[in-house]
């Protein structure tokens, strides 16, 4: 079976982002970009499925501008068999992304689509669930373990209260949480080879989907900064201060 993995190019998680002074967004010029961390877990899961002979082919898909090619090259370096870039210069919302991914699923007929639980830029946490609903596939979000058994997956999910296990029959959409696996570090020869592999490119507006944003961004602002407080000498002084503040 084929496995589809969606990967997104985002501002690297180690970067302290800056809000643009005109309030229109976040400064992405000359900022280190990398693959969304949860998407690395998705790719690792797909590769493990292939190594366990559950999957036959791993297809990485990215939707974004030309530079998303870098992210697809990283996917090749981790072991993806093919890469598809859906090119657009505008930032698309999860609803539009899910519609485009549904089109790719229609063309490629995978049995499993794996997405990160959220992208660490927009933090919407929507695309996987939307894709699952659009396709009418089973949904397993926030996965921390996935066991494949006869056309189904016993999927352990991270919940607010602990863990829960559900059984989802294929085809299914999985969204990954960090503890699902440890993504492999690509080896140098694989990185070199990845540079030469062909990327299939389609224009986003060639799919006949309305990609116009539904939400109007009014402004983007930096949160109020917390001022540093005071250093106290010892536990007794701390308790005194907390009592003064009527917190204790």
């Amino acid at each position: 079976m084929k496995v589809l993995v969606a990967v997104k190019r985002v501002v690297d998680y180690n970067v302290r982002i800056r809000v643009k002074s005109d309030g229109t967004g976040v400064d992405k010029d000359n900022v280190v970009m990398s693959m969304n961390p949860f998407d690395e877990n998705s790719l690792e899961e797909a590769m493990q499925m292939k190594e366990a002979d559950v999957a036959s082919e791993v297809i990485a898909v990215s939707i974004g501008d030309e530079k998303s090619e870098d992210t697809l090259r990283s996917a090749f370096a981790m072991g993806a068999d093919r890469a598809i870039l859906i090119k657009t210069d505008v930032e698309l919302e999860p609803l539009a992304i899910a519609k485009l991914l549904a089109k790719v699923v229609e063309q490629e007929s995978p049995q499993v689509a794996i997405l990160g639980k959220q992208a660490i830029d927009d933090d919407s946490n929507q695309t996987g669930q939307m894709l699952s609903a659009m396709l009418g596939w089973s949904q397993g979000t926030f996965a921390s373990n996935a066991e494949h058994v006869d056309g189904a997956i016993n999927l352990t999910r991270e919940t607010d209260a602990g863990l829960e296990t559900i059984k989802i029959t294929l085809p299914a959409v999985i969204t990954t949480d960090l503890r699902l696996n440890t993504p492999r570090l690509p080896k140098l020869p694989a990185i070199m080879k990845a540079k030469k592999k062909p990327i299939e490119t389609h224009e986003a507006d060639s799919f006949g989907i309305d990609l116009a944003p539904r939400l109007e961004v009014v402004s983007v602002a930096a949160p109020a900064e917390r001022a540093a407080g005071i250093i106290v000498a010892n536990a007794a002084e701390l308790v005194e201060k907390l009592k003064e503040a009527e917190a204790l």
Binding site: D121, R214, E216, S219, V220
Partner: peptide, 16 residues
């Protein structure tokens, strides 16, 4: 709504 893990706050208008 917070974006970038709360390092920025985005104000959005929904027309749906």
């Amino acid at each position: 709504r917070p974006i970038y893990a709360g390092n920025a706050l985005m104000t959005v208008k929904s027309n749906d």
